[in-house]
């Protein structure tokens, strides 16, 4: 088949037109997603602005909307996140290292791998029900910071495992072979080379997991934390020997999303402003954590020289 020059030009122009059209549609899709977030954030900010005072962060919840604050909520969120990170990261990283570096390639491993990926998609409320039966009643941990932290750790464990495995896979096989060639054991190879090189990816995975956990409401409500709390957990540092106390782990608590939920179900309009302000704080917390992940990834990657 032969085309004249003119025909070829119109054909190219037509294809280029489609190219532009797709580019435009793609951009619109992107804008739609971002604009929704921006509008939502803007609306929350406008609504909650007047409540975002220093006192808002240092006051306990109250029945008077203008005196109510998020002190117990943000302290609770930080404490729960601490427990979550302390549990999910060692467990998740160890599981991923085993799966990636140690586990034999057979059908058992294949099943476990598929299940880990599937677990990441299990609705969070299911984890809440599991935790209610297991942690709260079976282990007798009650509605404590420890229960909530462990629940959220379970929830983000698949995320941490998947991210860690991706990071481990990005380390070239030649590094492993070089370590073996020098007589390193598998553990020496993992701890001395693969883990340090993949730490950027692992940290990113951990923080993405934690930023999912920080906004979770359903599993925490399920374990029974929808509660008015106007006090702080016991301090982790004490004046008497041994100066460190773990009492706070067993304390009742509330977290940011639950405080918001509580305020939105109030009859008085003024509480809606508090909920909006708490929403802004929660969003900023999440965005800050994501920002931290990007920053860490950038700086740790710079250090690696193959």
């Amino acid at each position: 088949m032969r085309f004249t020059l003119q025909e070829m030009r119109t054909m190219i122009a037509r294809h280029k037109r489609w190219d532009h059209i797709f580019g435009l549609v793609g951009m619109l899709c992107l804008l739609l997603g971002i604009l929704t977030l921006v509008v939502l954030f803007g609306q929350l900010l406008l609504q909650g602005m007047e409540r975002l005072t220093p006192e808002f962060f240092t006051s306990f919840p109250s029945r008077r909307a203008e005196n109510a604050g998020i002190l117990s909520a943000w302290v609770g969120t930080v404490a729960v996140m601490l427990v979550t990170a302390m549990t999910a990261v060692p467990l998740g990283v160890a599981a991923a290292v085993y799966l990636e570096e140690y586990a034999p390639r057979n059908w058992m491993t294949a099943i476990i791998e598929i299940n880990v990926t599937n677990l990441a998609g299990v609705p969070s409320i299911v984890y809440g029900l599991l935790a209610l039966g297991l942690f709260v009643y079976q282990f007798g941990l009650g509605q404590s910071i420890l229960s909530a932290g462990l629940t959220l750790a379970l929830l983000i464990l698949p995320v941490v495992i998947v991210a860690t495995r991706e990071a481990l896979r990005a380390v070239p096989g030649s590094i492993r072979e070089a370590a073996y060639a020098l007589g390193a054991t598998r553990w020496q190879m993992v701890s001395g080379h693969v883990l340090p090189y993949s730490s950027a990816g692992i940290l990113t995975g951990m923080i993405i997991g934690l930023s999912r956990a920080i906004g979770e409401t359903a599993p925490i409500i399920t374990i029974g934390a929808l509660t008015f709390i106007a006090f702080l957990p016991n301090s982790p540092v004490t004046t008497d020997f041994p100066f460190i106390s773990f009492k706070w782990l067993m304390d009742p608590f509330t977290v940011m999303p639950i405080q918001m939920f509580n305020w939105t179900s109030r009859p008085e309009e003024a509480f809606q402003l508090n909920a909006a302000a708490a929403g802004v704080v929660l969003l900023v917390m999440t965005l800050a954590m994501n920002g931290l992940a990007i920053w860490l990834r950038y700086h740790l990657r710079k250090k690696i020289k193959w």
Binding site: S62, G224, L226, T227, F228, A230
Partner: peptide
Amino acid sequence: VYPLTEAVAEDFQKMKKGAIKVTVGIS
């Protein structure tokens, strides 16, 4: 009943200056 119990708990804890902790849940 929550709003009433919450109001009592709030004032009571203020009066006791945190010596007694009260939690009020909604189930």
